[in-house]
Design a binder for these strands. Structure first.
Lengths: 185, 185
DNA sequence: CAATTAAAATGAAGTACATCAAGAAAAAGA
DNA sequence: TCTTTTTCTTGATGTACTTCATTTTAATTG
């Protein structure tokens, strides 16, 4: 957090006491459709996947999160209405979570915290802009190559079918792309 | 702006004086690749399109903006590095624009302004999350139907090829979707 | 309003991907 | 360590969408 704003000791304590450490077992859900997402989570250990299941049973991944990433059903969280996403732990994990109302308090009480969350939202938005453009302009294979390049840490920690659904293709097709690559090299 | 925060007269004046009214002719660019996007623009009249052109000459639309929408190359603006997008006026238009440094000043000087830009970024991020999920989970035809439903005001004001490239399909394919619809009804 | 240019429509052919089905490999649980 | 479940692989087939080429329609400009 000190990358974005500089905090006094007192502020650091205030912040720390707003977050709660929670342990989550593999395959456990921290968000489910129908329930409002009451917390924003920061991953300090482990990995998560945020995804939807459509009416016809298809599974699509919106986001992965490993150490030092935030994860939530952001629409559910900021509007405080029922979630549409599942968020599940891919490994035994530990998160720091802040409750919605506490976050509002923090932001209201101190300009610095407001700034922090503003910057975080802006960076998130810029990131998603890049993602949308990349998805519009590239083939399935190029999207995979790009993911390898930009997120090498994620690749070995997320199941292939989940990565495929994040990249907008089927697990079968991603399998073929991968095997083609292996043979090439 | 008063939807998000409540401003005193003085604050309203401060805000107003930070923005500059600019008239833009149809086909005129307000952002071009290679140049840093120095302003964030709020459309008070007219329409804009933000798009990239890839190496192979293909054109992909990231965003449209009409009255009451903001538009910028957000990555270029917040990081103050060269733009990758073109932003062009689709009609003779009028915008209110704020310069990057002025925006920083506003946010620094007054917690309320910080809050305003934080909320705007959050809503933008939530919007893009919905968009990404929708694009992942729906066919070309469903994406078009959804656009009609959610953005009826845009449909008649943006060229078909631009809408097609926003929705991730070719202009020919969108043409076929539209004509199929017409015949049905 | 005539001439030019840009945008949209339409047909025919091609391709990047999905779907389905079955088996192999890997991971989880007992 | 054996069994069960989950994930990945591979082939065959199908389809949603693209590409290319041409004509029609609409918008822009002199």
């Amino acid at each position: 957090m000190n990358n974005f704003i500089e905090l006094s000791n007192e502020e650091t304590n205030q912040l720390a006491s707003s977050f709660e450490e929670v342990h989550v077992k593999k395959r456990q859900f921290i968000v489910q459709p129908g329930f409002t997402n009451m917390h924003r989570a920061f991953v300090i250990k482990g990995a998560f996947r945020a995804y939807v299941i459509t009416n016809d049973g298809q599974d699509h991944t919106l986001q992965f999160a490993i150490e030092n990433w935030w994860v939530s059903d952001f629409n559910s969280y900021i509007y405080q209405h029922p979630a549409t996403l599942f968020i599940v732990a891919l490994e035994d994990s530990t998160i720091l979570q802040i409750e919605y109302n506490q976050e509002q308090e923090l932001k209201k009480s101190n300009h610095k915290f407001e700034t922090f969350f503003r910057i975080m939202a802006e960076k998130g938005l810029a990131f998603e802009h890049r993602r949308i453009l990349f998805n519009l302009t590239n083939s399935a294979e190029a999207r995979y190559e790009n993911f390898l390049l930009n997120f090498p840490n994620f690749v070995n920690r997320v199941p292939q079918y989940a990565l495929a659904s994040y990249l907008g293709m089927t697990t079968e097709f991603l399998s073929r792309i991968r095997n083609k690559r292996v043979k090439k090299s």
